[in-house]
Nucleic acid binder design. Sequence first.
RNA 1: CGGAGCGUGGCGCAGUCCGGUAGCGCACUGCAAUGGGGUUGCAGGGGUCGCAGGUUCAAAUCCUGUCGCUCCGACCA
Length: 531
Amino acid sequence: MAELTLKIEKNNPLTTTLTYEIMPDEHKAAKRGIPPKTDFNAWYPFIVEAAELVDKRYPIKGMDVWMPYGWKAMRLIDGITHSEMERTGHGEVRFPLLIPYNLLDKENALVSKLKAARDAGVDPSEMRMDEVAEGFSKEVYWVKNAGENELDVPMFLRPTSETAMYTLFPLWIRSHADLPLKTYQVVNTFRYETKQTRSFIRVREIHFFEAHTAHVDEDDATKQIEEDLQIVDNLMKELGLTVIKTRRPVWDTFPGAWYTIAIDVIMPDGRALQIASCHHYRDQWAQAFDVKYEDIDGEQKYVHQTTYGMSERLMGAVIGIHGDGKGVVFPPHVAPTQAVIVPILTKDRKNEVMEISAEIKDRLWKAGIRTELDDRDIRPGQKYYDWEIKGVPLRIEIGPRDLDNESVMLVYRDGMKDSTVIKEVESGVKNGLDEFASRISKTAREGHEKTIKPLPKLKKKDDGDWGFTEVIEEGFVYEMAFDGNDAEAQVIEDISGLSFLGEAVKEYQTEKECIMTGKSTKKKVYLAKTY
RNA sequence: CGGAGCGUGGCGCAGUCCGGUAGCGCACUGCAAUGGGGUUGCAGGGGUCGCAGGUUCAAAUCCUGUCGCUCCGACCA
């Protein structure tokens, strides 16, 4: 559709008419070539480049170049994470990118040990056919040469940092006085993705946040997970996102984790995007890496560990959830530019308008509002479209008419219009941005709720196979009461074409009938297509 | 890692079948008027046609190889 519009020729009524027939409502957006958001697979990649968040032209699949505007937004998101880490007493560390291959032995030993234990101790009916723990071996980048020599011990680029960190943890942890050890780092990690990549959502060089903690016992580690989930809540509030928290099914748990809590958002196409996860390792990794401490009674004990991970998927979620047909919509907390001043210049009062605009920019900046003055010599309308596509929450219009009234026009990214007297522009803008933040959070929450439906009832068909009483619609996440085993879970996955996200952290208030076994349960399970 | 497709100014494309001066729209530069939702006029700049070989008087076009990307299937945050 976009192409058609771009090809409109003057004096060619046919093409012009055709365009209007196809997309009467989309015509304006299409002038920039923005696909409608309902076509999410086209909208998303277009918008991330048009808003100048990334440049995808770097010739490696899954490795985009962060552009200043996009990187600024990411840094602002990271800023929230950093301050939450500081608030909760984590220390920032930075481990090397390269990990020597032989350090993996310990990790591999752990994985195979766990697998053997699970195979031995688990009821075969609980097993899934495709259960294989292979670790990361297939998806790491290798460094096998240095200069002209082949390395004796090859190294790989970290896909995550457990191995690197837990090599040093035994040296850092001697006694119970060293615990809890709470560390985190924000680094790039690498995974050789073979699947289709997507800016921020599935990339090969990941902008990764990982917190790693060590505790005296399981209980203290569990408290850490609770703190992590509190941090997630705080972060999501600032980003205006509504999330689903689930305990991942065992078969989808990170190797060596006792359990995993995953945090997903539902993207506009109804697919779940995992944006954070917390793992409780108990002492499994500690045993593999020999991370011990001396307790109060002089006894050597293994620590209990947790990790908490996030990535630039947070950006992907913000763009996907808040964006609209005109472009990105940034929540004020993480908007690189929170307010843009567009001066309306007329020949006779140009200087006067510019002077006041610059003065207001200065005042807002001093009041802590990231403000930009767009003094480009183009028409105002063009500027509006430019800043809309970039998702700036507030546009301040200042023209001769406003000066006469000693006020300015405030136009929010969601279309809300207001005005404020110049004298009180700081407080007017601050309040306005707060209200805007609440509005987009509310819209996001409503969208989230609308996208979740109860799973249709199951029944056994004449041929003995299970089926649904209603069709599974595309574009939704489903919830159900479920208390079955892994094999039964797989049946549901197979016939629905959806994946188990896991058991909701928040259970049903009252007992319900398990969709498969009929058992009474409060367990709420989410099913979705995933990224 | 298997199957299909595509590489031509910054972006989107035409030209390739049938070899013969590399084009269009948008974007960009300069000047002027305009300026409260994509303004108009005039004048400009920019491309080893992914790369390497080959065929030919002549290659974006034909042949071979290679690299990269996109889309669909097995593995993952």
